[in-house]
């Protein structure tokens, strides 16, 4: 990877996918994670109410906001989710969902049929205590954040243990209840070191390379970062969960910019929904002059980059994905 030589980019809000709805109505409810498959399709993991079983699910759709299907529900049975945390897709198109309460990963085919589940609670090699973030590397190995063991474990996609790194603490290379995980094009590993209020970058073999951010709400500071993604040029995007924003850093971890959310108007699904004027709300809407609150992020949890370098921000509390693009003038 070369150091950035060209002019600084700007980041622009592009469009939004989703609105608050429960399948089969087109929408998301409490989306917490998204996976972009090789074919460009999205799998959006939603973790909403426990008192309504239908409100935890995965929606399969595309970047044009065409709804394809949904699967899963709340519960402890096979194919169900209790505390689903993150979602990832392997090279063959299988979909993996981590569940922090059930301590398991459920594997589905691309149509949502359950293929298998695995996971053993514990702290030995290959065991875990609340698996959270998940990502596949270029060799189709699976990196899983083992959050309450404060470490990262690498598995083959069949679930065979390969290696591990990290331990509890706040020093370099140590972790505290980590959450999201992602890779750059060189295979370096970025971990949202959640309760340490920082992002840590590790080499592919797990050696600590860089720490990004520190506690706070100022520029470049983080409060409980939950997700991280790196684009093709090495820009690092972080969902600064506790500060309701996304921050951008360069390759060396210097602060570049932040977005607070810019969703203008309606997504395609929202447009369709609002055409029926639910509960006669157009009148309520008509007297509002300041729409800021509708535009901004509310508890953004995950950020992912698609193969066109678009930035997908999972805006959990607003039940949508806001998409940003990087531009050079």
């Amino acid at each position: 990877m070369t150091l950035l030589a060209k002019a600084s980019p700007s980041f622009k809000y592009s469009y939004t996918i989703g609105n608050q709805a429960v399948p089969p109505a087109h929408g998301f409810s409490g989306p917490v994670s998204v996976a972009v498959a090789n074919d460009g399709l999205l799998y959006v993991l939603c973790s909403y109410y426990e008192y309504v079983p239908a409100w935890k699910f995965v929606v399969k759709c595309n970047m044009d906001e065409d709804y394809i299907k949904h699967f899963g529900s709340y519960g402890e049975g096979s194919g169900q989710f209790t505390w689903p945390n993150s979602i990832a897709v392997d090279s063959t198109g299988n979909v993996y969902v981590t569940d922090e309460w059930l301590n398991r990963i459920s594997v589905f085919d691309g149509d949502g049929n359950l293929e298998k589940t695995f996971g053993t609670v514990g702290s030995k090699d290959g065991e875990w205590d609340r698996p959270s973030g998940i990502v596949f590397d270029s060799e189709d190995n699976m990196l899983v954040v083992d959050s309450l063991n404060h470490r990262i474990q690498k598995f083959s996609r069949n679930g065979e243990f390969i290696s591990k790194f990290g331990e509890f603490g706040s020093g370099k290379g140590q972790l505290n209840t980590p959450w999201g995980i992602n890779l750059d094009n060189d295979g370096n590993i970025y971990v949202a070191d959640w309760r340490n209020d920082r992002i840590q970058k590790f080499s592919p073999d797990g050696s600590p390379i860089l720490q990004i951010g520190s506690s706070g709400s100022g520029h470049g500071e983080l409060t409980r970062p939950s997700g991280v993604a790196v684009d093709s040029e090495g820009y690092v995007y972080v969902t600064d969960w506790g500060n309701d924003r996304v921050q951008v850093y360069d390759q060396v971890g210097s602060y570049v910019e932040q977005f607070n959310g810019d969703c203008h108007g309606y997504s395609k699904w929202a447009e369709a929904r609002m055409a029926s004027d639910p509960e006669g709300m157009s009148a309520e809407r008509a007297v509002v002059t300041d729409f800021t609150i509708e535009r901004v992020f509310f508890q953004p949890t995950t950020v992912r980059i698609d193969n066109e370098d678009r930035i997908l921000v999972v805006d959990t509390g607003r039940h949508r994905i806001q998409i940003y693009e990087k531009q050079y003038n």
Partner: peptide
């Protein structure tokens, strides 16, 4: 102050 209704993106 007047506030937006709950649809399409949740309560305020």
């Amino acid at each position: 102050a007047p506030q937006l209704p709950r649809y399409p993106y949740g309560d305020y």
